[in-house]
Amino acid sequence: MTRFERRKRKAQSLLETVMGISFLVPIFLLLVDFTLVFAALQKNDSVCRNVVRTAASGAPEDANNRAQAILAQKSDSSTGWFSKISLAEPVALMITNKPNVQLDPESNEAFNPGGPIEGSAIASTQITIKPILLHLFHGERELTFKSQQSCPISYVMPESGRSNEVKE
């Protein structure tokens, strides 16, 4: 084999390697991006589930405060890949039935007899990621994903407005 032939073969291998790597690297980066997307989706979904459950299991007027507390607990910091998870919109409560204020026939005082509140809570959370390559196809540098979940309200309003509220 002449010197020229040896160099030609080496050059061919080098070219194949370079071309191969130039295919492999973007594919690898795309896979990293997809992993990031799936991880973000799952994290957002899990937090959204916790948020909606917590929002549905307490007094309706404090639903958003409880949701924010869970968000602060479960998504306390943003990293280079994920943004902090936030509420896409305030928690929506669809109340179908709740105990109403009544008038005590004996004392003539208004009171609420208490009872379960029926309906469902709907929470929507969002997370933003900064992909490595996907933005080339998408056009925007950041991708935002939303998750929406609902949960039946499981709260029993205590009796209120009577002088002897707490009974043994």
Binding site: Q12, T17, G20, L24
Partner: peptide, 14 residues
């Protein structure tokens, strides 16, 4: 034959 082996290897890996 060693020529083309890298290409095959990379396609296989891919």
């Amino acid at each position: 034959k060693s020529s083309g082996s890298m290409l095959v290897l990379i396609v296989f890996l891919l």
